[in-house]
Nucleic acid binder design. Structure first.
Lengths: 111, 111
DNA sequence: CCGCGATATAGCGACGTCGCGATGCGGCGT
DNA sequence: ACGCCGCATCGCGACGTCGCTATATCGCGG
């Protein structure tokens, strides 16, 4: 039963989110954690591969402390995780759902 | 052509969000506007069809004032719009991208 | 042992959203 | 004319995040 390849129609089926308020809460938390311009970009970058803090800060053009703070928020929600190596803190995505979300956002075209 | 069924691979292609901070900001705003358990559910419901305030309040099991306030927030971000008819205020989705977001969230399985 | 690069955190004031209760307001039926 | 219904808004205190600066931590080479 696995693979029904996502029928074009895709009955909204509707109500997973409607009835299950627990799921809605989880989703909302996920969204809230990413809902910040910097965090969106950070997640998008990490989507392409691990990076250490300074690299992120430089690439984003913002001071290191800011990046670190946003990373903390992402960390608190278990969306990213850090690994120390060579004196650098390499961050990586820890929540697979983020990838689908990002790819959804990438497409979602900006008018 | 329509249907390239979303190749499993789906190169994130990457950098639309990474370089374009304006787009990141727009996305972030969109996410922030929905990032609340109640608003997630409201949007999910409206995705299935228009509804008036009381119907939403009852279906969600929360007082009307709360629903109205959340609707106001969604309205301020132009995510929903209201139409008065028969003395009721029927709300509908005003931002097409919400549909993709919702269907993304619906699938996005809850662990 | 000391300094330095790489990160993390504390403190600040400002702001927006949260839930809630109460109140404002417009339209319709009697 | 009046009151009720459907909806919106206000005011409250509480809380979290915002950007920013300054400081704390940690590991390593000299």
């Amino acid at each position: 039963m696995a693979a029904r390849p996502t029928l074009r129609h895709e009955r909204p089926a509707g109500s997973a989110l409607v009835r299950d308020d627990a799921k809605a809460a989880r989703i909302a938390e996920l969204l809230k954690a990413v809902a910040h311009p910097l965090r969106v970009r950070i997640v998008a970058i990490l989507c392409l591969g691990d990076q250490h803090v300074n690299a992120l800060a430089e690439r984003l053009g913002v001071p290191q402390a800011i990046v670190s703070q946003q990373l903390r928020i992402l960390r608190l929600h278990d969306l990213v995780a850090a690994t120390r190596r060579d004196g650098f803190a390499y961050y990586r995505l820890a929540e697979p759902q983020l990838r689908s979300l990002v790819s959804c956002m990438e497409k979602c075209e900006g008018r």
